[in-house]
């Protein structure tokens, strides 16, 4: 939605723009990828963008696992939703960086952790590719059409607020991010028919049960905290958890939550009969 809104704003300024998502297999809350190309003339290229002028990161927890600036042009800029200042963010290289605390803006204005409109304001400030007024206009129309005028206006305000609060600077470049390993077999190495049994590759497990390789904590806005004193070990949270990330430690008569696989749905807290579980912000 952010990529499309940006494209519309650019077009309204007389440019040509193309916006498209990469359709992944993951469901709501999972990291997603979207691209926008803006030019003064018609854009024919229909491929994904590999060397962008600007990378927009809506969730700074991704910075721990993904080298978000690996393809960014040297003179380009990274726009990041973060409470940190640019110089406190380590992107593995020193590069133009803009930051804004979009999540707190969103929570304040929209009462929900939806950062896609706020971050557009930061983009406008950081790049100057579109005017903030054009963005406000296309946000109002696009969100207003679907969700009502008031919602449109509030989202536009979120963008404007973010625009004003954006800090531009340079990132730090200390950490070394290793590219996430991926098993990419040749066609000769592909299992016949794509049928897999349990296996291990240089990039980790494959086959039945291998989704355990997929840490989904990045999806979570909240996470559960259990009060051991209050807990009566009824096991309802263990039963209901759709992720299976609450484990029984039978010999200790205890439970343990592996936050690597918690998406923060809050079912455990909602269903706990003795209110022993509280949902707290996963990242502040």
């Amino acid at each position: 939605m952010a990529a499309q809104t940006l494209a519309e704003a650019a077009v309204n300024e007389g440019n040509y723009a193309v916006a498209f998502p990469f359709f992944g297999a993951e469901r709501r809350g999972a990291p997603v990828l979207a691209f926008t190309r803006i030019d003064s003339k018609k854009i024919f290229s229909k491929t994904q963008v590999y060397n962008p002028d600007c990378v927009v990161v809506l969730d700074d927890s991704l910075l721990d696992t993904i080298d978000v600036v690996s393809g960014l042009k040297p003179e380009g800029i990274a726009v990041i939703n973060s409470k940190e200042r640019p110089e406190d963010i380590d992107l593995g290289k020193i590069i133009n960086t803009a930051t804004v605390n979009a999540i707190s803006i969103a929570l304040e204005i929209l009462k929900a952790p939806i950062t896609n409109t706020a971050i557009l304001g930061a983009f406008a400030k950081a790049t100057g590719v579109v005017k903030i007024e054009s963005l406000e206009e296309s946000i109002k129309r696009k969100f207003g059409e679907k969700l009502g005028e008031k919602t449109g206006e509030r989202n536009a305000l979120a963008a404007r607020t973010a625009y004003e609060k954006t800090i531009i600077g340079k990132s730090r470049g200390i950490k070394k991010l290793e590219a996430r390993k991926q098993w990419l077999p040749t066609y000769q190495e592909m299992p016949v028919g794509g049928s897999l049994i349990e296996g291990k590759t240089d990039a980790g497990l494959i086959g039945p049960g291998s989704f355990i390789e997929n840490k989904v904590s990045g999806w979570a806005t909240y996470r559960p905290l259990r009060d051991r004193e209050k807990c009566v070990m009824c096991l309802l949270c263990w039963f209901y958890c759709p992720e299976g990330t609450i484990h029984r430690i039978s010999n200790r008569g205890d439970l343990m939550t592996n936050y690597d696989y918690c998406k923060g749905c809050g079912v455990c807290a909602n269903e706990c009969p003795v209110d022993a579980i509280k949902m707290v912000r996963a990242r502040v």
Partner: peptide, 24 residues
């Protein structure tokens, strides 16, 4: 070699993203 067998579970017909289908 690989069949649906509870003694050695296999997944056959998994959803497959573009980075594998060309090879298939």
């Amino acid at each position: 070699d690989i069949i649906l067998d509870t003694a050695r579970p296999a997944m056959i017909g998994t959803f497959m993203p573009p980075e594998y289908i060309m090879e298939m």
